[in-house]
């Protein structure tokens, strides 16, 4: 009873009320829906604490076994604990915390993003290894036209790239439409209580 009916009933009731609060913005549905969303946010904060502890546990485990990647784990543990202590004591607006954010985190993220550009380029170069057909050729052709078309001085290619945006947008919307339908039906299965990702029963 407690393992099967109660979790499903709670999930169905909360799901329905939040959904109705979004679709029908009338009182008291909106207030109830907002309260539930606020509760979920609080739970989300606790999830972050548990996830942070998992991060420490995984890397302390790796440090104990002292194998490849231990130096990375040491750095992660040191920076995670250090930052948590600093933010915990002084708050997120503190000068030192902001210093870490602006001078370590932001440049680090930017560096990683620039590496992503290179890895994307390498991925693109593998197109004919994995797609030796018309789709591979079309993919490469579209990429070249878009890249050259983004240069303003190559007029005709720029116009061609603009024209190519029409089928590209249609394709993108087609993919997104399918994803939206999949999302709606997966959500409905949970709200109907026929699918319970939160329990086995």
């Amino acid at each position: 009873m407690f393992k099967r009916v109660v979790p499903t009933a709670i999930a169905v009731a909360f799901g329905l009320l939040v959904l109705l609060g979004i679709f029908l913005p009338v009182e008291p549905l909106v207030s109830i829906s907002n309260i539930f969303i606020e509760w979920a946010m609080v739970l989300g904060a606790f999830a972050f604490i548990i996830a942070f502890l998992n991060l420490l546990r995984v890397h302390l485990d790796r440090l104990q076994k002292f194998r490849k990647g231990s130096i990375t784990s040491l750095l992660i543990v040191f920076s995670a604990v250090g930052t948590a202590i600093l933010v915990g004591f002084y708050g997120p607006e503190n000068e030192w915390v902001q210093h870490i954010f602006n001078n370590l985190l932001v440049p680090g993220q930017s560096a990683l993003l620039s590496i992503t550009v290179v890895t994307l380029l390498f991925s693109g170069m593998q197109i004919f290894r994995n797609h030796r057909d018309a789709s591979g050729f079309l993919f490469l052709l579209a990429v070249i036209i878009f890249l050259l078309g983004s240069v303003p001085y190559i007029g005709i290619l720029h116009d061609f790239a603009m024209a190519l945006q029409l089928p590209a947008t249609a394709g993108m919307r087609g993919v997104l439409l399918g994803v939206a339908l999949g999302t709606v039906l997966t959500g409905l299965r949970i709200i109907f209580g026929v699918d319970h990702p939160h329990s086995d029963e």
Partner: peptide, 28 residues
């Protein structure tokens, strides 16, 4: 399901290695 990641995955994966968009929802 995201378009940006599909753009990154498509050249790297053969068709039998890739699920595009809504195909991901057929897993169950």
């Amino acid at each position: 399901t995201s378009l940006q990641s599909l753009g990154a995955l498509y050249p790297s994966f053969k068709p039998d290695q890739l699920l595009m968009g809504e195909e991901l929802f057929s897993g169950g």
